[in-house]
Design a protein around this nucleic acid. Structure first.
Lengths: 190, 190
DNA sequence: AGTCCGTGAGACAGTCATGCCTCATATGAG
DNA sequence: CTCATATGAGGCATGACTGTCTCACGGACT
């Protein structure tokens, strides 16, 4: 039976490993388990002790992504105030998770097996609900479906993460450029 | 020496194979060469005769994507009329290529090898130029960089392709929903 | 009919990632 | 100090994909 201090350290390590894996896999989705381990600063053996196989790692990454999104949704208080402000808060809260989201976005393997984590469905429902609320309040245009707005927001988050990762955009502009484009579009307001 | 009719048929086949490969790889990026061959209705042997290895296939897919984008850019006449209309024309012309673009978007393997096809750079330059023109003409807002607008357009095309592929959006709405969101955003105009 | 050529099917070895194993080591607990 | 535990290093067997080969079949042209 492991000591409590060990258990505690393992939890920290597990999270660090997950972060490092996400950072690497975002840039190189076909990375070897050995590369992932090296990126996390641990050996392949330890990585395999913590995650039984690549599937388990990706699944854990998915769980982490869902948990972070749920945290962001909670912190953004989607039901408070104007929907546009809620969107801005949400994008800001989602920024640290953008890299992980970008990886999960490209990992369509997950959705291939028909059993997909229902956490995404819950998140989608909340997001769609936010855009629907904005429409019903007269804030948002009604010729774009809430489902599409949610999907587009996800896509813009991924694009933003890529643009920042490749140096095509400044990290400080992340929240602004995504939220402003999603809300206001490219055409100049008069 | 192959007969002319053979050469002609081979060209058609090559394109059909590329289409089928794009259609499959968009949904399952890790598909086997055998699966790709079966999706294209040919045997693995023939697939390997047409494309020497997986790399060659992906490279050919990339070439096809670039060529289609260049065609779309040419047909959209980016320099004619209001920039917003040019964007709408471009999205419409790009629609048939959206699936292929979605695959290439997730194939970050390409950009890992530092030698990336400069066709993308040319396309980027044209697209960025379009948004810059819109800004200079006072059509587009200037607080969003042309580079980001181009990146966002690419991301929205991919998101749209996914939404259509998963049945979350109607194919008929593709052009409209992308162009309108990119140009006008979610907030209702007064 | 005869010939050519593309194709499909199958077999083959080579390569690589994976998962599991053992062993030596260092660090922390008692 | 002694011991336990997690770790790193390395080896090994398995499985999957790949690239290439051979052979037989069928269609097209002469």
């Amino acid at each position: 039976m492991p000591h409590m201090s060990y258990g505690c350290l393992m939890a920290v390590d597990r999270d660090q490993v997950l972060r490092a894996a996400a950072g690497l896999l975002m840039r190189k989705a076909a990375a070897t388990m050995d590369e992932v381990a090296r990126a996390a600063g641990i050996s392949r053996a330890t990585l395999n002790r913590q995650f039984a196989g690549r599937d388990a790692l990706v699944r854990a990454l998915e769980e982490l992504g869902i948990a972070e999104c749920e945290d962001a949704l909670a912190k953004a208080r989607l039901d408070d105030g104007p929907a546009a402000d809620a969107v801005r808060r949400l994008v800001r809260e989602l920024e640290p998770s953008a890299g992980l989201l970008a990886f999960l976005y490209s990992e369509n393997q997950l959705f291939e097996g028909d059993e997909q984590n229902d956490g995404w469905a819950r998140l989608d429902a909340n997001l769609v609900g936010l855009f629907r609320r904005g429409q019903q309040a007269g804030e948002f245009r009604i010729d774009l479906s809430p489902v599409w707005l949610a999907e587009a927001m996800y896509g813009l988050l991924v694009s933003g993460a890529w643009a920042v990762a490749e140096g095509r955009a400044a990290r400080n502009d992340f929240t602004q450029m995504i939220a402003e484009l999603l809300l206001g579009g490219a055409v100049r307001r008069d």
